[in-house]
């Protein structure tokens, strides 16, 4: 967030030579800036509110709930962290393991679909694509009964395995079209140089696909990180709760302790902000990519 804030400040303050100012008025940019700043202010209201309250004690909140009060109380963060860290850790494990499994499976499967004209390929591929049309509501109850029968309730696997299975569908779809679009000459050349199939996959296809794999990875991480309903029905021990449902429990626990509550929310936001800071380009591509247009 800091990075974003800095570049925002930078963006709003160009070098103000007289020329730049005149251009600013002449082009009519000023009213764009005015409206955008108002818009952004409203967008950031909940976040600002969270940050301000997170430094308040209960009595400070009672006196003045929404404006900053001094002294600040960073110990709210320590108290919240003691509870929230476990949920973040659990989400980290679940999203991390499932994204690795998902990417490995999806790239191999997508590669097979793209490169080998095996009998039944089209039917099997449409069978996968059909899953894109199946909403979670249809499968929610049977999936729950299934994992219950398998004895997976209240384990990490109850999240990880379905996330791998479900997450690969979209990834296979995206990666297959990417692999198919790669020029045959590339592989021809590698083969002439004596590269095996495995080598062409690992040394040529994968590096070229790294950015699309990155996009798929981030989309999967954000969707599993934010998943609410599935963990809500399959995990109810605090030790294993992921961040979304952990926060839900935390809210009930900390109700009226507004400072600590908001500090917890802030801490919960940090991992995604770090991910975004390091991968902003892929992140944006993932959010607004043409890949979304089916």
């Amino acid at each position: 967030m800091a990075q974003a804030a800095i570049s925002k400040v930078r963006a709003e303050k160009p070098r103000r030579t007289g020329e730049a100012w005149r251009a600013f008025w002449r082009t009519g940019d000023w009213w764009h800036h005015l409206l955008l700043v108002i818009l952004l202010f409203f967008m950031f209201v909940p976040i600002l509110m969270m940050l301000i309250i997170s430094f308040k004690t209960v009595s400070q909140f009672d006196v003045d709930p929404f404006l900053p009060t001094f002294p600040l109380h960073p110990e709210n963060y320590a108290r919240a962290f003691n509870i929230v860290w476990r949920y973040i850790f659990n989400s980290f494990i679940v999203s991390g393991v499932s994204v690795i499994g998902m990417v490995v499976l999806a790239t191999i499967t997508a590669w097979a679909f793209a490169r080998y004209p095996f009998p039944g390929r089209d039917i099997l591929y449409y069978l996968i694509l059909a899953l894109l049309m199946i909403p979670g509501e249809l499968t929610l109850v049977p999936s729950f009964l299934l994992v219950k029968a398998l004895g997976l309730l209240n384990t990490r696997w109850v999240l990880i395995l379905p996330y791998i299975a479900g997450g690969q569908v979209f990834a296979i779809f995206v990666l297959r079209s990417f692999f198919e679009g790669m020029p045959e000459e590339l592989f021809e050349a590698a083969r002439i140089d004596g590269a095996s199939e495995l080598m062409t996959f690992v040394r040529i296809a994968m590096p070229l696909a790294s950015s699309i794999v990155g996009v798929v990875t981030i989309m999967h991480i954000t969707s599993t990180w934010n998943d609410l309903v599935w963990p809500m029905i399959t995990v109810n021990v605090k030790r294993l709760m992921t961040l979304t449902i952990g926060l839900y429990a935390f809210r009930n626990e900390m109700y009226t302790q507004w400072g600590s509550l908001m500090a917890g929310y802030t801490i919960a936001s940090i991992p995604m902000i770090i991910l975004f800071a390091f991968t902003s380009k892929l992140f944006v591509e993932g959010l607004a990519s043409g890949a979304l247009k089916m």
Binding site: M1, K8, L247, M272, I273, F276
Partner: peptide
């Protein structure tokens, strides 16, 4: 554009 993204980075639950 960057500033528009920041609010999305905050988890949906939050």
């Amino acid at each position: 554009r960057l500033a528009m993204i920041v609010p999305i980075v905050v988890p949906g639950m939050v």
